[in-house]
Nucleic acid binder design. Sequence first.
DNA 1: GCCGGGGTTGATGCGCGTTT
DNA 2: AAACGCGCATCAACCCCGGC
Length: 212
Amino acid sequence: MNTGYRIIIADDHPLFRNALLQAVTLAVSDAELIEVDTIDALMQRLTEVDDVDLLLLDLKMPGASGFSGLAQLRHEYPELPVVMVSASEEPAVVQQAMRFGALGFIPKSAPMPTLVSALNTILEGDPWFPEGVSLEQAPEDNIAERLASLTPQQFKVLIMLSEGKLNKQIAYELNVSEATVKAHVTAIFRKLDVKNRTQAVIALSQTGHQQD
DNA sequence: GCCGGGGTTGATGCGCGTTT
DNA sequence: AAACGCGCATCAACCCCGGC
């Protein structure tokens, strides 16, 4: 049994937040638990508290589609241990979480004992991912594979493309020049094997990363 | 023809792992 | 430890195209 951790649970679904809460309570005694239900609230909390030992982050949250939340977090808080929680168990999704630097990946379908042991493993500092998923994945040559090859920054850009934003707007939001955004966009095209932003957005939408 | 948006290319600097 | 290579992010200069 671990003790004395500060843990943030970020999930927009109250029922599942409770389930996670329960699992954490079983795995950790004397933990300080913080619950948030939006990305904005999460970001706000992160500016208020430090020394967060673990963040349980839902893959699909209001204010972030797909991995944009994780990408943003890794960018702003590289040291923060993040565990993805998701309804999806697709290997490509899990691998993407790995690529984005998640410490673990917990499927929502996992039974409570699994949840607890996963949490314990992660709190010990070891990664925990579902069975049968490894970094040396079987090459599947599908869109999900190609999406998984994007860097976090490129993924953020792609998310914003899917929101219909102009290069100029993306540049402003990422605090970089428009030229940089264009370079990212071109790199995304190359990795996704598409010719323009429209096709890139279509490719993204075909793998369940579409907007809420 | 000018302007604005999209897209391409080459250069630069950085971090990181590998080689020597 | 130094050199090296690699991927990434960043950027400017440039081209293409369509609307006004």
